[in-house]
Structures are given as structure tokens and as C-alpha cells.
Simulated scan of single mutants.
Amino acid sequence: MILGIGTDLANIERIQGTLDRFGDRFKNRVFTAVEQAKAESRNDVAGTYAKRWAAKEACSKALGTGLAMGISWKDMAVTNMRTGQPVMAVTGWAAERLAQITPEGHTAVIHCTLTDDHPWAQAFVVIEARAVGAVPT
């Protein structure tokens, strides 16, 4: 069953302006060390940060909270599988919220996809509850 869906659209040029203006202060407030390392290793640094920004916004929406209810930016983090597929992980208050909305006898699975077409970066997050022992289809 679907527990939540979130989407966000971020302007890459706006993120670049924020990076130019606030630099490490912005990066350290919003992104984990792993996210920063990924972004800094890419040709399109601002685009990589923008996609992850959008993913965090989308995840907070899928959790049904937005960012106003105590979730920290770093409570939601995007990494990548070896295949390149993005993966959203939650910790802290976001993990607590996920546990609250997950029905008994189910496990939550967070699906995340990212895309960009300059100057836009977009993310979709779907939170699924799978019955314990269910085989994914």
C-alpha cells in the first residue's frame, strides 16, 4: 500500500546562487558528508545538490510533514546504488515519523527518482508499506 507521495522541483541556478553565497555553511546544514562528496565529485555540482534538495523536500511531503514539523534536512539523505539508482534513507525524526505511519506487520520502503534538465531538478518519492514476508513485485 502507498503511505505517501511527494514531489519537488528545484531551480539549479537558485541552488548555485545559494552555494555561491553561503558555501560550506549551506552544504553542512542541508547535506550529509556522503551527499557532499557525491556532489563535489560530479561535473554538475549545483545540479547534483539541486536534485538532492528536491529529494529531501519530496520525502518530507511523502512523510506528510513538510519541513516544518521537526525534520532536519540531514534526517533525509540520498545515496546511490552501484547501478546509479538513487536511494533515500531516513534517520532521526524522519525515521520516527516513518515508523508512525507504517502499519503493524508492514515494512516501509522508500522509492526515489531524480532527474534534471537545466535549469530544473526534480524528485519524486513514494513511500510503500509492504506486508512482512511479502515478495516485491
Rank of each mutant, 00 (worst) to 15 (best):
A33E: 15
V30S: 09
Q16G: 03
F22W: 14
F31A: 01
E13R: 12
N11Y: 09
G17D: 13
G17V: 04
F26V: 00
G4Q: 08
Q16C: 03
G23D: 15
G23H: 15
D8L: 06
F22I: 04
G23R: 15
V34E: 14
I15G: 08
N28C: 04
D8Y: 12
F31M: 00
D24Y: 08
F22Q: 13
D20T: 11
N11A: 13
A33V: 13
F31L: 00
L9P: 04
R21K: 11
Q16S: 11
R29V: 00
T18C: 11
N28T: 03
G6I: 10
A10I: 10
G6K: 07
R29Y: 02
E13K: 11
G23A: 15
D8T: 09
T7P: 01
I5R: 05
T32D: 04
L9W: 07
G6M: 07
I12Q: 01
T7D: 06
R14Q: 09
R21C: 02
K27C: 12
F22A: 12
D24H: 11
A33D: 14
N28S: 12
K27A: 14
F31N: 00
Q16L: 08
K27G: 02
I12K: 03
Q16N: 09
T7C: 12
D20I: 04
N28Y: 05
A33W: 04
F26D: 00
A33K: 14
N11S: 13
D8R: 08
F31V: 00
L19Y: 02
F26S: 01
G23S: 15
Q16P: 02
V30R: 06
V30N: 06
V30I: 14
I12A: 01
G4L: 06
T7I: 14
V34D: 13
F22T: 06
I5S: 05
R21V: 06
G17N: 14
R14M: 03
A10S: 10
G17W: 05
I5T: 11
R21G: 03
T18H: 06
T32F: 04
R29K: 15
T32Q: 06
I5C: 06
F31R: 00
I5F: 10
L9D: 10
